[in-house]
Design a protein around this nucleic acid. Structure first.
Lengths: 250, 250
DNA sequence: CCTCAACGAAATGTCGACAAAATGCAGTTT
DNA sequence: AAACTGCATTTTGTCGACATTTCGTTGAGG
């Protein structure tokens, strides 16, 4: 329950009002709450219809996923984004996920094969974008579940947890860059090829495809996000600390 | 601030009273709060001299490190331990840490070499156990900092974060098993050999040594912990749910 | 004697209110 | 004119109290 409850599906949580976590995560992923944004609990409480205590807990949990940063005595902020972080994210995924995929291919049984094909089918039946430019939450959900299912048979809860965290992080960049639409069809092909190699138990080819799939995603994000082109830091963080002039940049 | 603030050294936290996090983590790692133990906030609040609100936040943050589990409407528990989890932990470390070490060896500069030798020196000057059987917190701290420093030059914050989480988890098993004392000298030799291969930029040998070092640690834990021998589940969790007889084991 | 149901006690989740810290602004000084 | 100092406002962190849920126990029924 640590990383991403979205991957568990609707487990019918008897649910404490800290289902705010999911709404908050969605708003951060969608960019409604931009990177670097200060999270003032008093202002956000009415927005979600809860008090500050559940909001505080939600922020704490999101901090564990790296979507929120905590600074003692200075509250919460949406985690900043940067080109360096995106590249690190990409590299780490390219190193971790093949490990999990290899194990999954080695240990996965017939039931797992069924789940994978089912996940692929559900994903392909969804439209990446719904109607006009806005992106479809259902597709994003199925996309996450597809990748989680693919690695699900690796037998390592820790690897899966790390994958979920990294995937959510990547999804934030992807949504922020709105890297959807045009190049999506090739991504669908990549998914299909990935499943094909996986079901053939061709670990080498599957891992190569996965690595390239991750790289492709990052390329799309970099192409679609103006602020991450060069070595650009976070756009929303470019607030100069005027007022105190003697102090260093903090 | 996410994974383990211990590895950051005393950053002179202006500190919110959720420095309880460190005390709680210490108590969980030491086994004062055994695995599976229910964390009743009302009873723990006086123990740490704070109210329930900071305690709640501390539990949330520890949940992000996997030391505490949250069940909606049912409060917090110390994360259970199991042979399967220990083995997963070991395998995952054996896969992740070589990746980081390889990158560190490739990119580390002279300053990093200095930090590594300094960390090794500080570690070797500490006694693993202080006086009688009780283990020395300072050694544990230096041990954590040594491993963090070794991988520090890998350039990937995400890998380092994952390493910190996995290391803390392993440290809990190590302390619970009290796998100290006798076989410690060979561990010291392993550290020295690891540093030697690292400074020689011999990535292959360094990674092999690291993998074996991790395996050795797990062997010591398994040998020292009675409850994890067979396929034993968590000892503290073996509370049969009597009273309700019809329900499955849940 | 065992099983099921309802009651009571405890704990959790949540809310509003208070103290401490930080941020921003204004006034004053050099 | 620019910078430092002081105060006022905002915000954070913390505490105690209330509603809801869960757990353990007792009692009745088969």
């Amino acid at each position: 329950m640590v990383a991403s409850s979205r991957l568990r599906g609707p487990v019918s949580e008897p649910t404490l009002a800290s289902a705010v976590v999911d709404r908050l995560r969605g708003d951060i992923l969608d960019g409604v709450l931009p990177p670097g944004e200060k999270l003032r609990l008093e202002h956000l409480a009415p927005r979600y219809g809860v008090g500050r205590t559940p909001l505080r807990e939600a922020c704490c949990r999101l901090a564990s996923e790296g979507l929120v940063t905590i600074v003692d005595q200075r509250g919460f902020r949406v985690a900043p984004i940067s080109r360096a972080d995106l590249l690190d994210l990409t590299r780490t995924r390219q190193q971790l996920e093949p490990l999990a995929l290899r194990a999954a291919i080695a240990h996965g049984d017939i039931a797992w094969e069924g789940e994978v094909t089912a996940a692929l089918h559900r994903l392909q039946r969804r439209a990446p974008v719904s109607g006009s430019g806005t992106l479809d939450d259902t597709w994003e959900l199925e996309h996450a579940r597809f990748h989680a299912t693919l690695l699900g048979a690796c037998g390592s809860p820790w690897l899966l947890k790390f994958h979920a965290t990294l995937f959510d992080q990547t999804e934030r960049y992807r949504r922020l860059a709105q890297a959807h639409g045009k190049a999506r069809r090739s991504v669908e092909d990549e998914h299909a090829a990935l499943v094909k190699a996986t079901l053939e138990r061709n670990a080498e080819r599957a891992c190569a495809l996965l690595t390239e799939h991750i790289a492709r995603t990052t390329e799309l994000v970099l192409a679609g996000h103006p602020g991450l082109r060069a070595s650009g830091a976070t756009p929303a963080l470019a607030l100069p600390t005027k007022g105190r002039s003697l102090r260093a940049k903090d």
